[in-house]
Design a protein around this nucleic acid. Structure first.
Lengths: 179, 179
DNA sequence: GAGCTATATTCTAGTACTAGAATATAATGA
DNA sequence: TCATTATATTCTAGTACTAGAATATAGCTC
């Protein structure tokens, strides 16, 4: 199961949902901070999960305007897959090279000044992201311990990267320009 | 330009290459530690870069056995794209949520013991990766400062994650099992 | 009963790879 | 000369999304 599939499946595991509702859940909880599922992908992913028999859809006509919804419910096989996939995600390390690291590998292609400007921008963007995460965590307390753990890990990773980056910028500033 | 395209283009920028040669460079330098470009993707990516006019191919018959090679050379437009893409990679932060974090979000789906076993496996895998990176860096000294920077950053990120993980495992061990 | 609005889903035409098998070709050796 | 080997490239049939436009339908208003 892919990350995107797992994310959708776990929302349905929590509570029966239709596509539009999943979109609002994602929006509401700021899940876009964690995944990159676009609106147009939700229905695609739902169909995929249904094809695998992990969820089953039921057309529901409701009071109020608008067409009927398809409300999805997780199946026994879906729970099994969710558990298996969660364990796999927890156990298998996944090497992650950020674009910035790839950029670093190509540092000689740009001038010192350009590199410095770019890295300062990176640093600012990272700080903003850090701030957003911190704010979101604080605004939602108290949270279950495992959600706090997620925030912790995310924040610690960003902070580490930011510290390293700021030190690297200083180091680069003091270097002789070879370009 | 995608990460994969950038990686290939930067190898060609360094020196004219044909497809098979790129594969051996990737293997030789342990670039799979940084990117996930499969062998079958190299030719696909070369074609893509050629279509964008960033590289030009030339059929070369060489001494020795085997069919002719297509040796690629970076164009002026290619250099321009390489510089632009490098600056973008250096400046634009990229949120990266590892599968483990997604797993953490689904922690309630598994039992405490299962989670602990999985996380211990994660920790071991991470340690091994850390060791591999460290060994590779040491075996290749002296390296250009920016390559050392890449290793530094990668190692610091892994170490941070590992420290957090080991602490989290301890915390989880002391918790009451609710599943 | 005709149009309007809100709600929800589907469709079209992409992009970006990827695994693995098949193919092509130059030299060499039996 | 004809199979074999080494070298290098191409082909087939996928998977996994994704942007944005189009469509469907229930109720409400006039």
């Amino acid at each position: 199961m892919t990350n995107a599939e797992l994310a959708i499946l776990s929302l349905i595991a929590e509570k029966d949902c239709h596509g539009y509702e999943i979109e609002s859940l994602i929006e509401e909880r700021g899940l876009r901070e964690w995944t990159e599922i676009g609106f147009s992908s939700i229905y695609y992913l739902l169909k995929k999960l249904e094809k695998k028999k992990w969820i089953t859809g039921k057309v529901v006509r409701q009071a109020g305007p608008g067409r009927s919804r398809v409300v999805y419910h997780i199946s026994a096989a879906g729970w099994k897959a969710l558990r298996a996939s969660t364990l796999e995600a927890l156990s298998v390390p996944h090497r992650t090279t950020s674009p910035m690291q790839v950029g670093l590998a190509n540092l000689p292609a740009v001038s010192k000044d350009e590199a410095l400007a770019a890295l300062r921008q990176q640093s600012e963007g990272l700080s903003e992201h850090q701030g957003r995460l911190q704010a979101r965590r604080e605004s939602q307390q108290p949270l279950p311990f495992f959600v706090n753990a997620m925030f912790d890990l995310a924040l610690i990773k960003i902070t580490t990267e930011l510290d390293w980056l700021d030190q690297f910028i200083k180091q680069l500033e003091q270097m002789h320009d070879e370009n």
